[in-house]
């Protein structure tokens, strides 16, 4: 089985592309304002290249030493696979939907919907638990932010 290209290659390339795009934008800046960005972006693109090259190396290593024991590179580093990041991505989509709902439904309605949705996504089946959580968070936020601190919360079009 042939392994795919290591993720670092993509990360590095993305870094280089971002640097180039932003670098191009700095050409229209006044001299003083452009100075620091050019230095930082140059550094960023160099790191991008180094990571790309490192990624190519890792790809090769992974392909050649297929039969051998996998290399322990770094405990913090994992090879991303679709199945692993699927659920976290679904979760951030739910959060994104919540944020969009906030500007339509206002804080309390959107938050209640979000908590119910998120806990169901988390396969919590006890409605008692879900509603208790919704109730307590809404109450807590209401008491602390609205009553006590007088902090405005996001208002929606409807509420």
């Amino acid at each position: 089985m042939r392994r795919a290209v290591h993720q670092d290659v993509f990360i590095g390339i993305v870094m280089v592309i971002i640097s180039v795009l932003l670098y191009a934008k700095s050409s229209t800046m006044p001299e003083g304002a452009a100075q620091f960005p050019t230095i930082i972006l140059t550094l960023f693109s160099i790191f991008g290249l180094v990571i790309t090259i490192g990624g190519v190396g890792k790809t090769r290593a992974a392909n050649s030493k297929q039969a051998e024991e996998p290399k322990i590179a770094d405990s913090r580093e994992e090879v991303l696979s679709f199945s692993k990041i699927k659920m976290p991505f679904v979760s951030i989509l739910i959060v994104a939907a919540y944020v969009i709902l906030l500007s339509v439904l206002g804080f309390f309605v959107a938050t209640s919907i979000f908590i119910i949705g998120f806990m169901m996504f988390y396969r919590v089946r006890s409605w008692k638990k879900i509603f208790l959580t919704v109730f307590c968070i809404d109450l807590f936020v209401y008491l602390l932010f609205i009553i006590q601190l007088n902090v405005p919360l996001p208002k929606g079009l409807l509420f």
Binding site: L132, F140, L143, L144, Q148
Partner: peptide
């Protein structure tokens, strides 16, 4: 379950406390 409940009690109590004192 009991523990979650405990947490909420702590939090709400704390709020009431500052609400009251405030």
């Amino acid at each position: 379950m009991k523990k979650i409940f405990l947490l909420f009690i702590i939090l709400t109590l704390a709020t009431f406390m500052i609400a009251g004192c405030g």
